[in-house]
């Protein structure tokens, strides 16, 4: 923990900023991927559970 803090403190502010931005971008991509996967899972599960009955509903 201390080593990381020291490294961060020693690095130039631009480097730290770039590192943080890169991490933030990676996390955003991962969250986006997970959300898309979640939507697909619910979509596929609905078809698997209901099959053709998915169309049977009051209009």
């Amino acid at each position: 923990m201390n080593e990381t803090v020291k490294k961060d403190a020693m690095a130039a502010p631009d480097d730290v900023d770039a590192k943080r931005k890169k991490a933030q971008r990676s996390r955003n991509v991962a969250i986006g991927f997970c959300l898309a996967a979640f939507v697909i899972i619910l979509y596929v599960a609905t078809w698997a559970k209901l099959g053709a009955n998915v169309m049977v509903r009051p209009l």
Partner: peptide, 8 residues
């Protein structure tokens, strides 16, 4: 204080 460096 707010932006983390944690990777996925």
């Amino acid at each position: 204080f707010t932006v983390s460096t944690a990777m996925p």
